[in-house]
Design a binder for these strands. Structure first.
Lengths: 260, 260
DNA sequence: CAGTGGTCTAGACCACCGT
DNA sequence: CGGTGGTCTAGACCACTGC
């Protein structure tokens, strides 16, 4: 009995002793401030896996917030997979392993994944008429001008991937120099293009002779391929790309959350 | 001016003429009923891409709901990528292409993707001591009993993938016959295990001689590999698997949503 | 300026869980 | 049974957009 008491106390204390500082003058929404502080508490271990959070009504009262606001904060962490709610039980911090790279595989993966020492060489940056394949992927008329971008990405001086991308020429100007320093998506974002969604297909095949030379692999080596179309806020296709990765130096790594 | 009027009308009419039937007696939440009917209206084309939804206050009034309830319904569709909200503008249906297989790549992919005519042959279904690799992946002590499952999945009589899975032996019993008829995840779900998240790594490599025989590919052919650990509600690892796919017959296909 | 979504409040009742 | 999250209401003010 005493043990149960202690256990429960340690659970409750975990959150009770947590100091949450809300700034009502800040333009940052209250629910977001709370969510951020909870998240960092979980990351720093102040809230340990399995800990109960205490009921929402109490939290709201303690912080001087309404219950819906507290719920909104908690819900955002549930959506991220950090918390689990159970009816009649309470809200718990999810156990250990799950929360490493919890972000869903993002469009910036290429950059982040190679983020140790990435370098890009632009092999080609021209305007061309859209081929049938490209026109279909981008949903534009055949023959329309598109930017054709061909890049070789390396880390530590060793080639990792060959990237070939197509963008409607009307969208933006691509400066080759800046492209070698930053990623394509960063430049698109800077140009006011807000990405909304993308469709990807990942497969494998053997290297052709040319690819072998470019990527420093023997002909017939296994390569990882990725084909992607990215869409705008409004649903317009804004980018189509076919990427080829050296299997020995690259893998796709991602986290899946099961929708309840 | 008249044209503007017509355009606005056609946008507004799209939703206004939509019949939404809410059943307050149903155990299904009102926001969920509304979300479902909006979603099917979008799928059936009753709500066309780019259509404005009309403001939330009006919708709430027309349906006899409160605004937060309507917001909850709309928000769930925004999260799915079907709708886009813009401050000061309104809520729009996302343009065309984006909404085909909008569900995020799920754990049931193997089954669904091969869902045309899938067959499974169980090559092995035994209990074994966990190897260091398996123990580390599942977060259990080395030597603990685990179920080792080896399966060959085919479609139309042709092999597609070789699946090797490990599960803590304490979790459930796996009947070989049922495994040949249904998927592993379905059986786990039926046993009361609720999946929460998973971590996957996708790569490529060349086939070994043994794999070539099993999968009916020449030695050295490109294969797609996938390595996955799946976690419980509580964060316990409940499954670890290494899968090998014939590159010519399988690709990973998924949709990404960019978090705002 | 008027209209939109974004945020927030202070209540309420219900369904589910453990005891 | 009491406690929990799940849902719902009827307001309110603000920030941003377009005119």
């Amino acid at each position: 009995m005493a043990e149960t008491e202690t256990a429960r106390q340690s659970n409750a204390a975990a959150f009770d002793s947590l100091e949450v500082a809300l700034d009502r003058g800040s333009p940052i929404p209250l629910y977001y401030q709370l969510a951020q502080q909870l998240e960092s508490a979980i990351e720093h271990g102040a809230l340990a896996p399995g800990n109960l959070l205490g009921n929402e009504v109490d939290i709201a009262a303690r912080l001087g917030l309404s219950r819906p606001t507290v719920r909104q904060a908690i819900q955002s962490l549930v959506d991220k997979g950090l918390l689990v709610r159970r009816r009649g039980i309470g809200t718990q911090v999810v156990h250990s392993q799950v929360r490493r790279s919890l972000e869903l595989s993002s469009l910036y993966d290429d950059l982040a994944a190679a983020g140790q020492n990435p370098a890009t060489r632009v092999l080609r940056n021209e305007i061309e008429s859209a081929s049938p394949e490209v026109a279909a992927a981008l949903g534009i008329p055949e023959g329309r001008d598109v930017i054709v971008l061909e890049r070789l990405r390396s880390t530590y001086g060793e080639p990792v991937a060959h990237l070939c991308n197509y963008l409607p020429a009307s969208l933006l100007d691509l400066d080759t120099e800046r492209l070698e320093e930053t990623g394509l998506y960063r430049m698109m974002r800077a140009a006011g293009i807000t990405l909304h969604s993308a469709h990807q297909t990942v497969g494998a095949r053997c290297a052709t002779a040319d690819e072998g030379i470019l990527l420093d692999e023997p002909e017939g080596a296994a390569l990882l391929t990725m084909c992607r179309t990215a869409y705008d806020d409004t649903g317009r296709a804004v980018e189509y790309g076919t990427h080829v990765y050296r299997a020995a130096r690259y893998t796709f790594d991602f986290q899946l959350l099961v929708r309840p």
